[in-house]
Nucleic acid binder design. Structure first.
Lengths: 162, 162
DNA sequence: GACGCTCGGTTCAGATTTCAATGTCACCGC
DNA sequence: GCGGTGACATTGAAATCTGAACCGAGCGTC
């Protein structure tokens, strides 16, 4: 049916391809991850962010923002990882309302072990298949998109702490 | 170290940008949809697929395949939509094991009403921001990806056999 | 130094999703 | 025909996610 009043055919096809392929890719990545580690994609992502943070610790809110998680989802996520010993929860010294998640040794180890598998899966499913121009294009598009949607957070100045 | 030979920095940045921006976009699209209709993105997607299918009906399995849903998730999804009167469930004449989802008049109406809003949100959050070269690039990349990831269902190049 | 306000996180109830069975049939070889 | 095998879909229980209500600070005002 033609409800194309709003989106020209090229863009419509693009949108659809993007949605469907991404869905497939995400579930594939998730399955791979679960297959060769005990982690969900969310778990993995948390570990990565913590491992890169100074002191390997992050405030809940900060973490939620970067993961694009609702506050309550993050609470649940961290509790779950805490039970499994991947992270610890500490109350924040500066602000007694807040708490922060801290990477444990076990968490780091788990990440180190999972990373090669995960990265391989990212490569074989997507990245290896892209030529340099495509990589450049995707990077440009999605960084722009991320900035426009994520609004403020860490954005502009950056690269001292990666 | 093995970790760096897995993904060069450009591709790593690309991968990250893609993941994060997509996450943000999907939640944004979902929120928009819920704001101006009573539909989730899954609901909407079901309606679109059914509206395009011959007889506005599809087998459960076929639908699950295209939505990238697990069978049980689809069962739940359709039950939920059935309760709301958007689709009906009929048992398949050819194969008595199977059933098919059929679009109702109310479902079609709901789709017609939701579509403009949804498409506008797709445009404003992403598509309007892309130039033609970017559209072409994304389309090429994601159609390729979709094909590579188990979507030998419908369309493109292989009619008649599957 | 109590009041009203907002903020960071958590909690609880309910909705959704997964995972492992299960039930019903189709299909194949005999 | 008849049993074995496997496909299609559903179910039930457990895991996860969402959204609203909540608690315990910070923060400003008077």
């Amino acid at each position: 049916m033609a409800m194309t009043e709003s989106l020209d055919p090229e863009r419509m096809a693009c949108w659809r391809a993007y949605i469907e392929a991404s869905q497939r890719l995400f579930t594939q990545i998730e399955d791979d991850l679960r297959a060769d580690s005990e982690l969900s994609f969310a778990d993995y992502h948390v570990l990565v962010l913590l491992s890169e943070a100074p002191g390997q610790r992050l405030r809940m809110g900060e973490l939620a923002g970067r993961l694009v998680f609702s506050p309550s989802r993050l609470t649940y996520q961290i509790s779950s990882m805490q039970k499994r010993g991947l992270v610890a929860r500490e109350s924040c010294p500066d602000d007694r309302r807040g708490s922060e998640a801290v990477l444990t040794a076990a968490g780091l180890l788990t990440l180190r072990e999972a990373a090669p598998h995960h990265l391989r899966s990212a490569r074989t499913h997507l990245m290896d298949d892209l030529d340099d121009a495509e990589v450049a294009c995707l990077t440009r598009v999605f960084e722009r998109l991320g900035r426009r949607l994520g609004s403020d957070r860490d954005a502009s100045s950056t690269p001292a702490d990666k």
